[in-house]
Design a protein around this nucleic acid. Structure first.
Lengths: 219, 219
DNA sequence: AATAAGGTTTAGGTATACCTAAATATTATT
DNA sequence: AATAATATTTAGGTATACCTAAACCTTATT
């Protein structure tokens, strides 16, 4: 299937979060297209001043590229929220649908959905929804893997890297605002026993790294 | 902007309602593309067995073409209904948005929206929504222009041929299920004075032809 | 510093959905 | 029945977003 300009920009934005310069091959991986296709597209994006590009040196979003990325992210997250709130989707079902819908959203529709949802600040996974003006507040919470025995907090965000991870987290009772407390940590592999609301469950380190908790001020 | 296969099929379906064979130029007009582009596309649709095509003889939907048309129509009308019911769109605002959204709708989303709306039988303009299996019940009601003095009925459908027509109809108080009664018909131009719910309004013949009423059994 | 390995770009090609201009077919008029 | 008018198709060309294979840079290793 054919990828949108918006998908390139959105993915460059995401990759940029991790490193400064974004490489051709990392974009190719993210979008599952060939490196040659990325080079092609990169030139067009550069012509449209959405990115800064020096051959062989990688790529960086310009101001207007960043704006497009945040608008697309906003639309994606509003659609996700909408699917959950109005159509009873679960958090593991929304991504693919929102991925298509985000490109089909007039400013008018965007505002109506925002209003119907009561101007939400976060999507169903706890990710911040950028404002209409392209502002985003990235909140910085520790992951469950960072906590020690007897530490506790409230689940405020999960990574939506895969559907099966999200399904797993739901199956052990993890939701937004779940109370969570670490009971025990296995030294060997970092896995842990935790109390989620009132259930005693076991969580691998891999899973724990994708759950973020508000521990109220300290740490 | 680039037109979808689905748009061609949907428009051929609509044109076919009026005549048997659909001409190249009528499709070109409906989609605002050149006749040459239509000929191009027609060959592709024929290769995919969506239409029957004999050069210079026009075009006809096959069974699977008709199925695609009705599915697209169903999705369009479900989105229209959804925009009205959940996001407070008015009937003159929904068409363009639904035109884009109809192409972005998985079977799952289609069913969830259908359910959330309570399995509606008609869209906001009173057009029948085809079933999941591609059945459609075209109800055959007289237009307001067909009525004479003292005839009365209930508005059950309006043509959504233009936004300004829909806006005009709304402005004189016409809605689905409005009570309507003909008070007077001008011989010269067929325009009429009618009672809509309890308002006395004047309607040109051009407008009257686009309003359809249920007159309860008798013709 | 030379070479080997890996990443990136260029060259040339595909498919889709458009276009204009020219050629051809059909239909309507005399 | 010939011609004129109109509709349709063909030919050749554009832009977008992909691809593979080959050429070319950069970086890492020895």
């Amino acid at each position: 299937m054919s990828t949108h300009v918006e998908d390139y920009i959105k993915n460059i934005y995401k990759l940029q979060g991790e490193r400064e310069k974004v490489t051709t091959s990392s974009i190719a991986d993210a979008l599952s297209v060939s490196a040659a296709s990325v080079t092609d597209m990169i030139k067009k994006l550069s012509d449209r001043s959405l990115i800064k590009y020096m051959p062989y040196q990688g790529v960086e979003l310009t101001h207007s590229g960043r704006r497009m990325a945040l608008q697309t992210l906003r639309r994606h997250r509003l659609w996700e929220m909408f699917l959950v709130e109005f159509l009873n989707y679960t958090w593991d079902e929304v991504h693919d649908e929102a991925e298509k819908l985000e490109h089909i959203m007039s400013t008018d529709l965007e505002e109506r959905i925002d209003k119907a949802l009561g101007y939400p600040k976060h999507d169903p996974h706890g990710h911040p929804i950028p404002t209409r003006n392209g502002e985003i507040i990235e909140d910085d919470h520790p992951s469950l893997a960072d906590l020690g025995i007897n530490d506790s907090g409230v689940v405020v965000r999960v990574n939506d890297i895969s559907q099966s991870l999200l399904q797993h987290m739901a199956s052990i009772g993890i939701h937004m605002q779940s109370q969570i407390k670490v009971l025990d940590v296995v030294q060997f592999d970092g896995s842990m026993r935790v109390l989620i609301d009132d259930n005693n469950v076991f969580v691998s380190r891999q899973v724990a790294r994708n759950i973020f908790v508000d521990i109220g001020g300290k740490k």
